[in-house]
Every structure is written in structure tokens, then in C-alpha cells.
Design a protein around this nucleic acid. Structure first.
Lengths: 166, 166
DNA sequence: GACAGATAGTTGCAAATGATACTAATAGGA
DNA sequence: TCCTATTAGTATCATTTGCAACTATCTGTC
């Protein structure tokens, strides 16, 4: 038994019990369950849905304000806006004060779609956590947030390393 | 106060407190933290990493056996295999009994890469849950699994509805 | 032993995502 | 006023992913 610990460490890696793998599978399942609702009904992508749902209640924001609230980057938002305009769900005007800025709002059609989708996604949301107690739901959210913070810290570290060797 | 409940339901949708949105943001952060490790070091994609890690310890599987163990579909696996072969990290032979089947195993080079990456991803895994107690980790996994089952049930229902109207 | 179906894996096309570079407009000095 | 740096948003290209159709091989039945 000379080769014990070292060889074992490497040999026993099991994808199925690897935490990040489980997270990804979990996230994909949840994401698919929700997004297929608005995809099937209205052909909306995730970015489009996010954009709509942020505009839905606040109305009239610029693209960069949407970026701030949606964890999407500006490229993503720009494409969602284009595609929503093509579908006539969203209208874009130019800010009078600053002509770089857009003023985005849902059209009536867009608002109608949004209001139609809301109860559907709310149902899915409810079904996802139906068999969890209030405490469990709160705990799940809290733990996810904690892990997410750790992940973001790691990502930050890595890009810092990449840019800067000092 | 005539318009109370109905209007409110629709108006108050907040993306930031929408459970599936939180899950997606969480999953993306975790996924990015891990995959950038093997992407930056060896240019491996998630599918490639999964394929390697399944072959790593069991050795010599067919593509469809990888499909069963990886929550990837066969297209995904096929492409990962191609790309790993191009990098000479994986070797494919043809099964003598059934010439449709492939026999996949890591090359020496592939095994070396795999063994090199394992401690790195293990570190990330540890860092992600460093500030969670054993109980919290167990609870997080259990709750994710519960929600995931719900999500899979929903997805199953939806595709059943789509195919079949009776 | 030939033919219908099932199975293993591949290919091609379209949508989605990420990273980088670019254009247009504004702001802040000198 | 003019010049540089910033900011808003768009365009470009490479990767990734999903879906559907396709090829090759095998199995079972007649």
C-alpha cells in the first residue's frame, strides 16, 4: 500500500459528487423550466425576458440602467433591445439631454405580453418551491447568496491575477 | 382603492427577487469560477472537462455511457470527443463486438492534464463552500436536489403537453 | 438471408453568448 | 475653442448549444 494517498486523491474524482457540477445541473433544470414558458409562448429569450421585466414596472430606462439591474452586459442588452424592437414589444427614443442615451419603454403590445407571461412564470416559481417550507426557502436563498459571493470573489481574484503580475 | 389586487400583482414583478433569476445568477457565478480554471490553463470547455473527468477514473467507455453519466446529450459528447482527439487528450477505438460503438479513453497526455487540473478545481470547490458549515453544505445540496426534481417534473409535463393533447 | 426497426454516433443549421474593437456623443480642461 | 478622455451603445468574430436530419451498424423476425 505504498501509493496510498496521492494516487487516491487523483483517482477518486467523481463528477457526480462535484459541487460545481451539481450546481450547474440544478441551474440548468430551473432555468429551462422557467424559460420554456416564455420561449414557447412568445419566443422570448432569457435576455429579452429580463429586459422586459425590468422595464415592465419602472418604464423608460436607458440601456445602461438595464445593465445595472439585470446582471447582463451591455452587449447582451443591446441585442435584446434590437430583437424586442423587431417584434414591436419595445420602443426606443433618444434622450434629449444626452444623445448617446436611449430611452427604452415597452410598447402596449409589449406590456400586454409581459402581463400575460407574469402569472405563468409565477406559477412555475411557485411549483419549484412548492414542497419547501418557508424556512427552507429562506435558507436556500441565503446559502446560494453566500456561495455566490465566494464565487464572485474568486472570479475577481482571477481576473486581477491575469491583468497584473505585481 | 378599487384597482387593488389585480393591478398590484402585475405591477410589482421584480426581477431581482424572482427565484429562477437568482438561481441563474448563482449558477453562472459558480460555473464561471470553476470553468475558468481549466479554460485558462488548458482551453477546455465544460463538455470537454466533463468527458475527461468521467473517463479519468473508469477508463474505456463508449460515448453513450458518457452521456448517461454526464447530463450531456450525445451531440455534446460527440463534439467534446472530437475536440479532445484533436488536442490528443483522448483516443478513440472501435468496439470489436459492435462496430457502431466507440471505445474512449484518455491518452497519457490527457491523463496528465486531468491530474493536473484536479487539485485546482478541488481548491475552487473548497473555496466556494469555505464559510459554510457541514450542515449548511448538506442542507444546500438537499434543497437544490429537491428543487431540481420539481423543475424536472415541470419540464416533463411541458413536453408531454406539447406532444399530446388528449 | 433479407427487411423493418432500433441504436450509436455525426453533421449541418440556427440561435445564444462572450470578448474585442469600433463609432458617436459628451465632458472637462488648457 | 480645441483636444483628450469617458461614456453609451453597436458591430464583428469565435465559441457554444440545441434541434433535427442523416449514416452506419446491429437485432429480431419472417
Amino acid at each position: 500500500m505504498v501509493t496510498a494517498s496521492n494516487a487516491k486523491d487523483q483517482e477518486e474524482f467523481q463528477l457526480g459528487s462535484f459541487f460545481p457540477y451539481k450546481v450547474r445541473v440544478f441551474g440548468t433544470a430551473v432555468g429551462t423550466a422557467v424559460s420554456s414558458v416564455y420561449r414557447e409562448r412568445y419566443g422570448l429569450s432569457v435576455s429579452e425576458w429580463r429586459t422586459m421585466s425590468i422595464l415592465g414596472h419602472t418604464q423608460a430606462l436607458s440601456a445602461s440602467e438595464i445593465v445595472e439591474r439585470s446582471s447582463m452586459d451591455k452587449v447582451n442588452v443591446s441585442r435584446a433591445v434590437q430583437s424586442l424592437r423587431k417584434k414591436e414589444l419595445l420602443r426606443r427614443d433618444i434622450d434629449g439631454e444626452d444623445r448617446r442615451k436611449s430611452v427604452l419603454r415597452l410598447t402596449e403590445k409589449g406590456l400586454a405580453v409581459f402581463n400575460d407571461v407574469i402569472p405563468l412564470v409565477r406559477n412555475v416559481e411557485a411549483a419549484l418551491t412548492a414542497n419547501l417550507s418557508e424556512e427552507e426557502q429562506a435558507s436556500l436563498l441565503a446559502l446560494m447568496e453566500k456561495v455566490q459571493k465566494n464565487a464572485e470573489a474568486l472570479i475577481g481574484d482571477m481576473s486581477a491575477d491575469a491583468g497584473n503580475e505585481t
